[in-house]
Design a protein around this nucleic acid. Structure first.
Lengths: 337, 337
DNA sequence: CTGAAAGCGCTTACAG
DNA sequence: CTGAAAGCGCTTACAG
């Protein structure tokens, strides 16, 4: 494969490489005869020229690449954040490179090199628990925290988790529920803490008590949701409804309720935080809270862009209102039982 | 951030850059006094040196990076392939960079540049339909098709889809089913065709007929599985069991059966191709066929590695036997009804 | 045993 | 209006 170099284009267009470079990069300070410019562009096209990325990167110390560190690539909810980020990055001429967080955090491994060798201009760090220490190699590299707030660490972009969970509670209250429980996420996940706070605030505003045994903690996975629901159902009085911090945990939780022989939604209403296509095909189809995740991805990239260009940017909370996706896992509580 | 260059290390160790380079890269042809070597290594360590990736890439025309084009990042099944590939790549000193197939195939967009600018040494192309044309920019770049067989295109690594589907059918036959249907994938997906072939072969070997209306086609998504199941259930005689080509389609299909009021597994047995944690939490928990997907990822990287090093490699079919994961969506058929 | 020098393919002051 | 030249940070024949 004979690769076309800038010199080839310049020769073909009968100009110097500097002129070719400036035309092809749209240098605004250049003044050049229209026909020369066209000749250069035509030849570049004809020879199918594209600049050698390494030569350019070496010269400019700039990669036009962002890395995105994502835990749980398998979680359908994350796909939407990724998609948003990819679009925004592409629009700005950047390539987005995805990195599995688990691999990323393993010290000494290949991904550390992404940073150490400055192969990316900036990093989007998504959804890691607050306790995670960012690798030292990150020093000096612009990054933004996606869906995670940690003021001491740096700029972050998050959605309004509390508002989302409030919406869930309000829906349940409106249906007539009073004994509403919450399956919360781990304490070290700030998203989880905000959802819990939103839950408590909404309950307070509705004049409802949150008994201690109405909050169960579950990590992200189905299995944890399953166990948390079992604990909830062991308590007395039993809740008539539960708002769950993640879709995966909700799927596990619903399985636990079913296993106990509870009829959903008649005997127990469930609403899950985050929506995904699969929610519509569960038994029962899950009522969910849809968050502006694509926007989350887009805005995160925009923040990173200004950081990379040397600007400063405050942390952002996306206030686009969450939406209730009404399906069949919520209903008015049974009267007495 | 003052970045350490090779020259800094060389100066600190009081050697030339060529010597430093050779020592740090473990050049086997070098002969050097042990203490000099140690001095160089010590200084590199102390100054926290890591080579500039662009300079090296420019010189060597080699990136130590593989790209992996993956459709449907959200599909939990893919996560396992990715994980396997990442591990194998890291073990060989390569970074694996994930690219969303949808973005990838959009012409003229940022990801084309990954190829055109030779930012990766090779490409893993996963699961695209057979009709997809690979972009022209791919010319000359080593690539392997993952989970897709297309001899005219190039080397591929696949699993034994037919054996997997055969296992599903045999399980159903053993339970006593005779009217077994199949929800197949799109005809343009070669994985789907092989699963269909495996289905037919296993049915034939069991002496069972496959009536035309016992094969329904569904794309990858839940919604398509839902519709395919409806078509299957509209036919007469009705199947007592169905083997489904993808987990997502199976989730949709089960929802359709449930919507019709069918009791699973008593009135209808279902087995899904591919396993994932979520399968255990569905209603009923899904019996699935577990394929060696991690191995698929690993072997694909190994193939790409030999390709990149200039070797030739035949296409591979991984013969590791698939496993039946027995859960609660399969049972003997009801007698008469 | 070790180092000076060329060159990978760009961009960009600088000089006409 | 345009081009020659330096230099980004490496690696590697080549010469001692």
């Amino acid at each position: 494969m004979p690769v076309t170099r800038l010199a080839d284009v310049a020769r073909a267009a009968r100009v110097g490489t500097s002129t070719a470079s400036r035309v092809l990069n749209g240098d605004p300070t250049i003044s050049i005869r229209a026909d020369t410019r066209e000749r250069i562009q035509r030849e570049a096209q004809r020879l199918n020229y594209s600049p050698n990325w390494f030569a350019r990167g070496l010269k400019l110390a700039r990669t036009a690449t962002f890395g995105m560190v994502m835990p749980n690539l398998a979680y359908p909810v994350n796909a939407e954040i990724i998609r948003g980020a990819e679009r925004a990055a592409a629009a700005a001429g950047y390539v987005l490179v995805l990195v599995d967080a688990e691999e990323f955090l393993r010290a000494g491994d290949a991904f550390q090199r992404l940073l150490q060798e400055r192969r990316v201009d900036g990093l989007l760090v998504a959804s890691a628990p607050s306790t995670t220490r960012l690798p030292d190699e990150l020093r000096g590299l612009p990054f933004v925290l996606v869906n995670r707030r940690a003021p001491r660490l740096g700029t972050s972009v998050t959605v309004d988790d509390a508002a989302g969970m409030r919406l869930a509670v309000e829906h349940l209250v409106e249906l007539g529920h009073r004994r509403i429980a919450h399956i919360a996420g781990p304490r070290d996940a700030d998203t989880a803490r905000r959802r819990l706070a939103g839950f408590r605030a909404a309950m307070r505003d509705a004049g409802l008590a949150v008994e201690t045994h109405f909050v169960a903690e579950a990590s992200f996975e189905e299995a944890a949701g399953f166990q948390a629901m079992e604990r909830l159902l062991d308590g007395r009085p039993r809740p008539t409804a539960v708002a769950i911090w993640s879709l995966a945990a909700a799927i596990g939780a619903v399985a636990a309720a079913r296993r106990r022989g509870l009829k959903l939604p008649e005997e127990l209403s469930v609403v899950a935080f985050h929506d995904a296509p699969i929610a519509a095909y569960l038994d029962p189809p899950l009522t969910t809270i849809r968050m502006p995740l694509r926007e989350l991805g887009e805005r995160s990239v925009q923040c990173l862009l200004t950081l990379v260009e040397g600007g400063a940017t405050p942390s952002i909370v996306i206030r686009t209102p969450p939406a209730l996706v009404l399906r069949e896992s919520t209903a008015p509580p049974r009267r007495r039982r």
